[in-house]
């Protein structure tokens, strides 16, 4: 009667009316019902129609994923909910700003690695770099891990956004 399939990573996209409290409703639903949030992004995507898109990465069993979708759909301002991981072939991207403080050999090595990762230097001083890097979350993880021994001091990440490949829209 109870499903015991293991939890999986899912990326869920939610279109909502951009009205006061819409984000609070979505987040409150996750915390209130004990669903987890690995990352969350939100921004208005259609100013004319006042529509915002929220992207949440979660870990859940397939049965719970269905519950999450159904519960989200119950919220009045929610227009549509899509599991980008299973319902579409989708592209996922995340942006990171990574600050490294170092000099000498380490400074040279960090710059060299940033080129390998196609990161941009968006700010620099004699003893620091801020790199901007876009990619799949795993690529960002790898870059951050490589920077650690070279003087990583600060990381800021946007969380994942996703969109369907091809001409399909959600």
């Amino acid at each position: 009667m109870i499903e015991d399939k293991p939890a999986e990573r899912r990326c869920i996209a939610i279109l909502v009316d951009n009205e006061a409290g819409a984000l609070a409703r979505v987040i409150g639903l996750f915390s209130g019902r004990g669903y987890n949030i690995d990352s969350l992004t939100v921004a208005e995507v259609d100013p004319e129609k006042h529509t915002s898109r929220i992207t949440i990465v979660t870990q859940a069993t397939p049965m719970i994923v269905e519950q999450i979708k159904a519960q989200l759909n119950r919220l009045v301002p929610v227009q549509s909910v899509v599991d980008m991981t299973t319902e579409y072939e989708s592209v996922e991207r995340e942006l990171a700003l990574v600050k490294v403080c170092c000099t000498g050999e380490k400074r040279v090595e960090s710059l060299r690695l940033s080129e390998v990762f196609r990161a941009h230097v968006v700010d620099t001083t004699h003893e620091s770099f801020v790199f901007e890097l876009t990619g799949a979350p795993s690529k960002l993880d790898a870059f951050v891990n490589l920077m650690r021994p070279l003087g990583l001091v600060d990381v800021s990440r946007t969380g994942v956004v996703a969109i369907a490949r091809g001409s399909e829209i959600m």
Binding site: M1, I2, A70
Partner: peptide, 23 residues
């Protein structure tokens, strides 16, 4: 006890709230 709830039946569920299904 969920594990022992009506173990041999096929179930039809009519509900206006999709979140009640398979909860």
């Amino acid at each position: 006890l969920l594990e022992a709830f009506s173990p041999e039946s096929k179930k039809i569920h009519v509900d206006i709230d999709p979140s009640s299904i398979n909860k």
